[in-house]
Nucleic acid binder design. Structure first.
Lengths: 133, 133, 133, 133
DNA sequence: GTGGTCTAGACCACT
DNA sequence: GTGGTCTAGACCACA
């Protein structure tokens, strides 16, 4: 399904959430698709089941997936995703905060801007392609 | 000198680092300016001296400031800032990672892009103005 | 694992750094070996965990080890060691500075040179033997 | 007389001691030469007189200089320098310790040895020349 | 006064 | 259990 990067600094828990969000938002995992069980996924990633469980709980809370007791966990409708304005604000603040780091490293504002916009556009382009498949 | 935001998620020492980097990069703190002492700053921010110490050490490692034992801590020449290519790469990855969060919240790629670029341009504009004064 | 020398003049955390570097460079600690936890090592050496933490952080910054939060600290690949030319220059300056101290004590330059080279060769010989085993 | 390097990491106090020892051992300051007064030297170096005083006390304790009350401070006979075997041992240990740092940075033992011996020989050569003048 | 190091003990997120 | 951060208070060398 995906791979973890143990040395990335990000916690495993966040990596699972981000990876699954990405798979859902790019329609690789379509609505109502059944996700691997907590046990199966934890075995695949050779991590503790508790860690997977915690990530699934968070995804459910945010409306990305839903659970049917005894049947499994499924991808929810995109409409149910809770796009809290506060979360949008916070994510945008993170973009700016990361951008500032580029400036602090001594890059000119123009270089930093070009670099960032190019990277964003490359990302959007590739997502577009994936969706087209 | 600046204020801390206790609920920002960022750790205190990271906030100190970012704030001082910003003051240096915008020339509010000029080369050879003496920074407040570890004790003074910790009193102003009502935090523990060790926390300030940690931030100062990291800033010194990255070349923003230098220390003269028994005399104080001073703003270094901008040329000594260590702009490790790995750090640039990492900061750019953080921009992209934060941008992806916007997409995960359900925003269209176009909206997310516009929102981010606008915020970046607003930031660059304001920094430009500050330097111009 | 190793012993500390409380009267050596070197600070405790520097001794930890040097000892672990030595164990890694002589392959006593192989890549991916798990180091003792911060708490375990601090108990063994009867020092404060913060002091071990500080040493580990510095070793991580220099690329000798890497950390997986919640799992432990591990020996990194030797290729990731950051051999900053500035550090080489600084270490060489330290050799010369220590050598000058020998001259200041009244030794003839020839005696000081012989003494130093002999000690270096003895060191290289013993390291070679260890690696050969 | 000499210059201080505020950013060198070495304390001012040690720099004064090492500089004066060097001037004495290379016969730039001959026996019975009068040293600048504490006040004069502290003004020249723009540092606190206490710092110079402390350095002079240490030099006197090690037998490099002697004080005549009301007249000033003078270079002593080289024969009075206290070349404590313990100090020789300690200085040699510092040479080895600094040499090890070269190894820890990933240099081959041979490269590190060559580099160090060359630097030592260069130093001896230049000292020899100075003495010849 | 300054920064540098260390201890003792706490709380947190994550595995 | 693990590492990461923080507080409170101490002692040191140096200026």
């Amino acid at each position: 399904m995906f791979q973890l990067d143990m040395k990335s600094g990000k916690s495993i828990y966040e990596q699972i959430i981000d990876n699954i969000k990405e798979l859902i938002m790019t329609d690789v995992l379509a609505e109502n698709t059944r996700l691997p069980s907590v046990r199966t996924l934890s075995r695949q990633l050779t991590i503790n089941p508790n860690t997977v469980q915690k990530a699934f709980k968070e995804l459910e809370r945010e409306g990305y997936i839903f659970t049917v007791s005894g049947r499994g966990t499924f991808v929810g409708p995109k409409s149910s995703i809770k796009a809290d304005p506060a979360q949008v604000k916070s994510a945008l603040a993170d973009v700016i905060s990361a951008f500032k780091q580029l400036l602090y490293l001594g890059l000119s504002p123009e270089d930093a801007r070009d670099m960032s916009v190019s990277a964003i556009d490359a990302l959007i382009g590739s997502v577009g392609k994936e969706k087209g498949l």
